[in-house]
Design a binder for these strands. Structure first.
Lengths: 170, 170
DNA sequence: CGAATAAGTTCATTTATAGAACTCACTAAA
DNA sequence: TTTAGTGAGTTCTATAAATGAACTTATTCG
């Protein structure tokens, strides 16, 4: 049957996945960030099917991660540009790339490096806590229910589990 | 036809997506992190089809993000535990959640909060540069070709683009 | 014995993906 | 001034994957 929608799950990660959770979308965003912005270039770079690219770009536009801009009249030609929301996803994709570099790196080494222009260094992104500037990892973080927490599909078990854990610690 | 594999693309993000790039897998990892670890619990929490969950867990095990552990003999019963590689993905998913909190938050507010036990604060994860501790965003970072950069499907256009940009800046 | 629990399998139906071929509007070369 | 080429899609068919419900299997509890 049709794909289950994550849009109405009460979980920000699920909702994010509704927008970028399919195979090609993160690669399209990566390409737009790097500067591959036109339809045929995207097809050439990724080897994606043209009908799929059309569909994905349309969805990205509807979700306001990407906007379409004419770079030529006469033959009307468009290119695709990341919006603020789309650009804000770039660091997350960099963090995912860093994970890939660490765990599924090709034998030849890292395919791509990131350079931070604020300090001039080539770096590997880290995920940190803004309060203490320390690294965040699975062992030093716990989850708490937020104001939007609800028990529904996607959080049927989790919703109660978080509440109980909080009560136990209180 | 069958889904295009990203496993042989010369890009760490693509390779990461080969492992966690489908709809349900990130949610499964989220649940395992939070403590929903058994088959029927996962079905109940997510509303995922049982055959799909079986398939996803098998793939996660093959890719060494998850391991299966018997918690009962006699009726042999298993639960699923994140490996080091799987746990290392948790901060990335938290960063994605933070993006979701910012751009596609439910009307009721954040469904879930993170608490950093190193400093005791509830926080929203940030992606930073380990050299200067500054935030990383799309405007302050550029990409350079790495030693494993290659021109093949997934990087046909990008490979040359990065090389040219580097030569131009040199 | 009969019902319940946990962890899957099997199956029919619906939807998505892949890849190739085709369309349409213009432009540059012969 | 036909002819070929470019860019951005659309249309088409086959194959593969997702959904949801029903069915298995093994074991324990009342």
């Amino acid at each position: 049957m049709k794909r289950t929608t994550f849009a109405d799950m009460q979980c920000s990660m699920s909702r994010a996945l509704e927008v970028i959770g399919d195979w090609w979308t993160p690669l399209i965003i990566r390409d737009l960030f790097i500067g591959v912005a036109r339809f045929d270039q995207l097809v050439a770079d990724l080897g994606i099917s043209r009908n799929l690219l059309t569909e994905r770009l349309k969805l990205l536009e509807e979700n306001k991660l990407v906007s379409k801009r004419a770079y030529s009249e006469k033959p009307t030609r468009y290119e695709y540009v990341l919006t603020a929301a789309g650009a804000d996803l770039v660091p997350v994709l960099m963090a995912l790339t860093a994970w890939g570099d660490k765990w599924v790196r090709p034998a030849e080494g890292k395919p791509m490096l990131f350079k931070h222009h604020t300090c001039g260094n080539v770096f590997s992104p880290e995920i940190t806590c803004p309060h203490c500037a320390g690294a965040v990892d699975a062992t030093t973080v716990t989850t708490l229910p937020g104001p939007g927490g609800r028990k529904k599909r996607g959080t049927m078990v989790i919703a109660e589990l978080l509440t109980k854990a909080q009560q136990a610690s209180a």
